[in-house]
Design a protein around this nucleic acid. Structure first.
Length: 933
RNA sequence: GCUCAGAUGGUGGAACUGGUAGACACGCAGGACUUAAAAUCCUGUUCCCGUAAACGGAGUGCGGGUUCGAUUCCCGCUCUGAGUACCA
């Protein structure tokens, strides 16, 4: 029979499902291997053609590892809490759970038809109560923990309380809020429970903090940053303002250093690690306190000094002014009456500037003088205080010491406002710009004069510490993560409030179920949707009204797959001890600073409290490239008055006509040739369309854009699976190019892959499409083809070069076709090797070959034997001055000298040499011969 | 601006530690089969010179360099894509 992919694929997909072929065992003598995909958010649009790219790659890898004798865990699930379902609920009243359920069904159908080897018995959904029960449980563990810097790990809050009871706050080195109290054991015990709880909250790893949010009064809701465009809501275009709210936060900054160090231990793409490093943003320096000059400043102040952070504390004697952010809390009290007008005007201008303006304005210098001064803590020199918008309130202390001789921004500022520029290093060249050199020795720097960078820095820090004006400090750019959303469709926070303080609910009350509400909107008073739920109350007080953010459920899901049905624990210690960590994780790089950072954070925390064994969750990670859309265009002829006509001009002829381009559905275009009949049917107004053709065809224009419905360039994997089958889709997506490279989706070459599979099928069949193979001894040539592909596929899969193995398969099948091979032994091995790429056709052929009923998924991968590839001759390329001239067959047993003699003795070579004797002959055995003349 | 990735035929791409540039596939052109079309098969296909073959020349974004030999290594530049936003 001809290759009937539809029947074959349906048959085997059913077989795998019915027989639980890919169910992973939790105990096995085989080595374990965990292949994970980033699970999808089940959106209403369904799976698009970019999703399967990574899934196919990981599936090939998982299937390959099974053949190689590994016990493979390859699960799939859904990140099913999220905004789109909630948005849809607001519009239609449809419960998000219902929408989500529908979408999941679509995703499942789409995934199934591609023939993935997922172990569906372990499916997880983050929105399912038996899953989010454990997300809530982890939240509770975080609430009950603090970070001990001395032990460099999270510890139980009970241990902190015990310490307070014994020793008071002395000897505690914690990552915590800034405003902690200092107390003795006696004082601690004297505090009321309420006061103790207030204090403990400053230490907990999840805690309440006042944070700024984008508040949209018209919509009555909080918006994410990307929902706000230029100060207006993307939806509706209502004004958005900054509002302070008490929000749950996660003390991820406690793990900053470990998150940074851990990057060196994992096999991830370097650009991705770099993104995380930049996000964490460690800088080593010092904090310095500049006392405010009271002789020039007389209005009352809340503080005596301004604290700055600097990475170049060694330049402290070059400080000629201080700059604080316009939003800095001291601005108002530092401003003298004479300067008030200037300062107010500057602040007003800054406020008006959008972030875009501030970016575009990066080169213009602006600022204003407050009229006040600080003193250099080391020599008492008077230093003016300025404000400028290049200093950010949100980073460091919102204040910088300006050293115009060493920092270009400070230099420009000083030039602009005529402030002094003091060189502090002997070799500094500061005539036209700042010189940030660390070479040379210090000048104009009192006790540091003559010292070099290293000694100078140490001396300054020692001096600052001695006078109590500063200390060495490490600063991180990363902020604590906000962990609350004023939304409905998320995990409820397992907390109730009593006397304004948060308390955890009892563990045996988990899961705290998401309640029903009448509407998915905030209340009239602006409270989150959960405030609408009736009886949403704990016996002791009101429940928290916000829900957890989208990243909560995805920050630990890989553990749930290890033991997905467990109702006693998030996963059993045995399952975790066996599966340990993810060996291979495939997904997009857009999760670099979100999901991948939070997951590492939670993993480290779970390790600290002894629940998991590994410091890092994802040993190896591969980024699949983004699939872009590839739009096609038709060109509508425009008449004299500029109106569109019903005539369309082929792309090659548009220079000769006046036309306007129009997106056309890529699904009615093949190899840039428009299907005219389908175009006329596409939309009613084109039913009578006329065409100006070139060579009898209508050629469309092409452009790469985002894949989106409005560009008509969305390609649905279903259509391709219908037309060519899943095996072709799988192989074609791999054939498209390197996995990690971003590329536009393009079906132009898919026929070639389909033809290849038919050709493979035909190897097993005669001209009448009857199955038949020979039991003869394989020939040398057949074995050579076979073992070449065995080696190639092993090498390619191990380095994730799937596109090149598809090519190699084509070469092997072409060779075997030329050899007219139908040898059972050879073809049987071919079936196994190809099966991870094209599983359906291979299962079918495996059965036809007469193997015992069942699957080939666990057959042993053929062993490579180098002996079949040994050659005794090699066609040496003979080049002269590096230019290849000819090939010459020479025995590989000859050594270098004999090869040289053979080459020089050859008549054709002599012809090229034209009577000359080469000055030099380079012979690389088995590679090349090069002669220099 | 900074960081990272990339640039190879008409197209997607291959060439793994410096060693025959363009594998494999698409497209295109010509041919076979067919009444015809589809399907299938065969041949050709980097560019230039040359009627054709032999032969010759150029050629991996641009300009240099190292080397017997560079798509690969080094220096400088151009362009494209992604991320980031004055980080003190």
């Amino acid at each position: 029979m001809d290759y009937q992919f539809k029947d074959i694929e349906q048959k085997w997909q059913q077989f795998w499902a019915v027989n639980g072929t890919f169910k992973a065992e939790d105990k096995s003598n085989k080595p374990k291997y965990y292949v994970l995909d980033m699970f999808p958010y089940p959106s209403g649009a369904g799976l698009h053609v970019g999703h399967p790219l990574g899934y196919i790659a990981s599936d090939i890898f998982a299937r390959y590892k099974r053949l190689k004798g590994f016990n493979v865990l390859h699960p799939m699930g859904y990140d099913s809490f999220g905004l789109p379902a909630e948005q849809y609920a607001i519009q239609t009243g449809q419960h998000p759970a219902v929408t989500t359920e529908d979408n999941i069904a679509t995703y499942r159908r789409q995934l199934d038809q591609i023939g993935f080897s997922f172990d569906w018995s372990r499916e997880v959904r983050t929105s399912s109560p038996d899953y989010y029960k454990w997300t809530q449980w982890i939240f509770m563990q975080l609430f009950n923990s603090w970070y001990n810097k001395d032990a460099d790990k999270a510890e139980s809050i009970a241990s902190l309380v015990a310490h307070f009871e014994q020793n008071g706050s002395a000897g505690i080195n914690a990552v915590c809020d800034e405003d902690i109290l200092t107390f003795t054991a006696g004082e601690w015990k004297a505090l009321s429970n309420q006061e103790q709880q207030v204090e403990l909250l400053k230490y907990r790893l999840t805690y309440l903090r006042e944070s700024t949010v984008n508040w949209c009064p018209a919509l009555g809701t909080v918006l994410a940053n990307d929902e706000v465009k230029d100060g207006f809501s993307e939806r509706g275009g209502y004004p958005v303002e900054q509002k302070k709210m008490m929000q749950w936060s996660m003390r991820i900054t406690a793990y900053a250093e470990r998150l940074l160090q851990g990057l060196d231990t994992i096999d991830w793409p370097e650009p991705l690690k770099e993104m995380q490093r930049n996000w964490i943003g460690k800088s080593t320096g010092a904090s310095v306190r500049f006392p405010i000059d009271k002789t020039t400043h007389h209005s009352p102040l809340t503080t005596d000094y301004i604290e700055v952070f600097t990475t170049r504390v060694d330049t402290i004697f070059g400080v000629t002014f201080l700059v604080i952010a316009p939003e800095h809390e001291l601005v108002a009290s530092l401003t003298t009456p004479e300067q008030k007008a200037d300062i107010d005007a500057y602040i007003a201008v800054t406020k008006k500037k959008s972030e875009l303006d501030r970016m575009a304005d990066a080169k213009t210098v602006s600022g204003a003088f407050t009229g006040s001064y600080v003193l250099n803590p080391l020599n008492g020199q008077q230093i003016p205080i300025w404000i400028a918008d290049y200093v950010l309130a949100g980073y460091g202390t919102g204040a910088v010491m300006a050293v115009p001789s060493g920092d270009q921004r400070d230099y420009l500022f000083a030039k602009h406002f005529n402030l002094p520029i003091v060189p502090i290093i002997d070799i500094q060249k500061i005539d036209t710009e700042a010189d940030p050199t660390k070479e040379g020795t210090y000048i104009n720097s009192e006790f540091m004069n003559g010292l070099d960078y290293k000694a100078g820095t140490a001396a300054v820090i020692a001096k600052l510490e001695a006078v109590g004006a500063g200390k060495a400090k490490i600063n991180f750019r990363m902020r604590d993560a906000i962990f609350g959303r004023q939304r409905y469709w998320g995990e409820p926070v397992p907390v109730y409030f009593k006397d304004g303080l948060p308390y955890l609910i009892e563990e045996d009350h988990l899961p705290l179920l998401l309640p029903e509400v009448d509407k998915y909107l905030p209340t009239e008073s602006g409270e989150p949707p959960l405030a609408r739920a009736e009886g949403w109350k704990h016996a002791e007080g009101d429940y928290e009204l916000s829900t957890m953010p989208g990243w909560a459920g995805s920050s630990w899901y890989w553990y749930r797959y290890m033991d997905a049905q467990n109702d006693k624990e998030f996963a059993s210690p045995e399952a975790i001890a066996y599966w340990k960590d993810v060996d291979l994780y495939i997904g997009g790089s857009e999760h670099a600073t979100g999901h991948l950072l939070y997951s590492r954070f939670w993993n480290k925390f779970l390790k600290d409290i002894g629940k998991v064994g590994e410091e890092e969750p994802f040993k190896k990670l591969i980024n699949q490239g983004m699939i872009q859309g590839r739009s096609n265009f038709v060109y509508r002829l425009v008449d004299e008055e500029g109106r569109g006509t019903n005539t369309f001009v082929s792309h090659g002829l548009i220079k000769e006509h006046k036309t306007s381009p129009l997106h056309v559905d890529v699904n009615i275009v093949e190899n840039e040739v428009l299907n005219l009949a389908k175009f006329k049917q596409w939309r009613p107004e084109f039913a009578d369309a006329e065409f100006i053709l070139e060579n009898g065809k209508y050629i469309c224009g092409v452009e790469v854009e985002k894949m989106s419905k409005r560009y008509y360039n969305v390609v649905n994997p279903d259509d391709i699976a219908q037309r060519y089958g899943a095996d072709t889709l799988r192989m074609y997506e791999m054939f498209l190019g390197p996995l990690e490279q971003s590329k536009p989706w393009n079906t132009n070459g898919i026929e070639g892959v389909f033809k290849f599979l038919r050709k493979f099928w035909r190897l097993f069949h005669n001209d009448a499409w009857e199955f038949g193979v020979s039991d003869a001894e394989p020939s040398k040539a057949e074995l050579k083809s076979l073992h070449k592909i065995i080696r190639k596929v092993e090498e390619d899969i191990e380095r994730f070069s799937f596109n090149t193995s598809v090519s190699s398969f084509m070469i092997a099948v072409n060779e075997l076709t030329d050899l007219k091979s139908n040898n059972r032994a050879v073809l049987q091995d071919m079936v196994i090797i190809l099966s991870s790429y094209a599983p359906h056709i291979c299962e079918e052929l495996w059965t036809l070959l007469g193997n015992p009923a069942g699957t080939l998924s666990y057959a042993p991968f053929p062993k490579f034997n180098a002996a079949y590839l040994v050659e005794d001759e090699f066609a040496y390329p003979i080049s002269i001055n590096g230019k290849m001239k000819m090939n010459l067959n020479i025995s590989l047993s000859l050594d270098v000298k004999d090869i040289e003699a053979t080459v020089l003795a050859n008549a054709d070579v002599q012809k090229y040499l034209d009577g000359k004797t080469p000055k030099k002959v380079i012979v690389v055995k088995g590679r090349i011969v090069n002669m220099v003349i």
